[in-house]
Design a protein around this nucleic acid. Structure first.
Lengths: 298, 298
DNA sequence: CTACATCCATACCTACCAGTTATAGCAGGA
DNA sequence: TCCTGCTATAACTGGTAGGTATGGATGTAG
């Protein structure tokens, strides 16, 4: 009996929430649509998975048995798909490059040009990651190499090559009082509300909130942004301020937002990263192209 | 990205056949439908899985990577479903009983009555297996206990309790010359064409062709039947003859078919079987009910 | 005990899609 | 060059996944 994995995903959502309305919200569909689909799943399998009343939802024994299996199946499928994409990229000689925000800044173009000169038969596919994933897709295998901003999660088995280091600046609403400073004193930012990266980003989040520089002074997080676009929009609308790399200031202009240097704050380092177990020659060659572009011929 | 497992099944079929038309036949759909669905799969995954020309079909690297994963996913799902069904049966106290052809013959009713008397809160679900599976569903876990005809595949870890032994008879087209005998001599059947069980049934097939009694005399198999109904239909239409249990003769009357005892042939033994690792009390109790019904109170 | 709030189910509608048959188009072999 | 075999395309039909509006049941507050 075949089944659409979508239905399994729906079932898992309901089984986890034990609440159709909430599960439907989580899945971005209407509650009746969800009710109908789960019922359809039960019909297709000829099994009752849930006991519902207008007040309570609970799993049957069958539902209980199916839940972990369904989770597993969805995970396995996701991994299969990743492996398949990797095979496809390899076959048509496409190097998948992940990046975040403005990648390697002005250096990016040079790097890609240098790589293309060295290996003209390879194609490059650039994909921008959301802030929730500081490994830019290396973690889940959706890219082969990535321009990452340190720190990356330590538990990831990544090889790193530092490409550059640049000061962190602060982005402020234009009308903000601190915007008058040429260089904003770090101490003056301690009580400002910050736009933060998502919690899943771990140590990365702390870095961009400058937690270690605050010496225990608590952070006010006023909003969370998934990307530079959301971040800059939040700042322009006065929700708060945020640190960023100097080069980002050149890439993300927007009326209503100004960028200023900050004193007493460590720089941001940009690195090329790849999975340590990925020993492909093409990776080494991309790293070499990066090194060549980063340190112009003496 | 979710996917319908049906599409994966389609892909696997094409990948195995490397031929859309043949794969479509195997899947019992039209060739254009299959072409469209495989293309849809590729579109959904944004991957080319197959290179097609009007003359050749071959896998891409992506297709090659996906194929084993897809097979695995389908198998895993099938097993999950079986486990879930078992949980459902357990919860609503349903004992799933497999059987083949006429189960335990006239004894069946008594057994079920006895079991129901002893454990009235349990329900019984009877499901008839096709001849391709002499374990009657124990192998794949779709039943809890089964009335099986020996021999059962030896490699299956099954517990067995012999319930009865009865002579094998032969079924003949009414007009067949041998139908004149009261008891058909085994030797006279050596060159008759036989309706056989499917090859997957293994040693069971040999037993019902009486291979060991033939002492090396080759068998003529004129047709294969998946069930008693197909079998009796084939015999009535004169395609051949076949051995069966004596009790089956009483359960499957049909104009155009006659049953006769055969000499010099070993009997058929019927057993109750279950998975050896299944230690549930209810299994033991069903076995006890069978024993009680099989050997009426002294 | 009644009124209310909450939540799942049902009814009904629309857009899309899986399947069908018929046929076009392409490629290899006699 | 024609024939044959195979996949793709076209046109159609029934079914279904999604939507909104509303019914109906049940636990809770007063």
């Amino acid at each position: 009996m075949d089944v659409d994995l979508r239905l399994l995903r729906y079932f898992v959502a309901v089984a986890e929430e034990l609440h159709f309305t909430r599960a439907a919200e989580r899945l971005f569909i209407s509650q009746p649509a969800l009710s109908k689909q789960v019922r359809l799943l039960e019909t297709q399998l000829r099994l009752k998975l849930l006991r519902r009343s207008s007040r309570h939802v609970e799993l049957t024994a069958a539902g209980n048995a199916l839940l972990p299996q369904a989770r597993q199946l969805l995970d396995t499928w996701s991994e299969s798909l990743t492996a398949t994409r990797a095979a496809a990229a390899e076959e048509d000689r496409t190097l998948r490059v992940g990046f975040i925000t403005n990648a390697a800044g002005e250096l990016t173009t040079q790097i890609l040009a240098e790589f293309t000169r060295r290996r003209p038969e390879w194609r490059i596919s650039m994909s921008q990651a959301l802030w929730a994933d500081p490994t830019c897709g290396l973690r889940d295998g959706s890219v082969d190499v990535a321009f990452v901003r340190l720190p990356v999660p330590a538990q990831e088995p990544l090889a790193l090559r530092i490409l550059l280091s640049e000061p962190r600046w602060v982005a402020l609403p234009s009308a903000h009082p601190l915007a008058r400073h040429e260089v904003v004193p770090f101490a003056s930012l301690l009580d400002e509300p910050f736009i933060a990266t998502p919690p899943e980003s771990g140590t990365w989040r702390d870095f961009w909130l400058a937690v270690s520089e605050r010496r225990g002074h608590p952070v006010r997080v006023s909003a969370v942004a998934q990307s530079s676009e959301e971040w800059i929009e939040a700042i322009a609308n006065g929700f708060g301020v945020g640190f960023t790399a100097e080069s980002t200031a050149r890439f993300y202009h927007r009326p209503g937002v100004v960028y200023r240097p900050v004193d007493e704050i460590s720089p941001s380092r940009l690195a090329l990263a790849w999975r340590r177990e990925d020993r492909r020659r093409i990776i080494i060659e991309f790293a070499a192209a990066c090194a060549a572009a980063a340190s112009p011929a003496a």
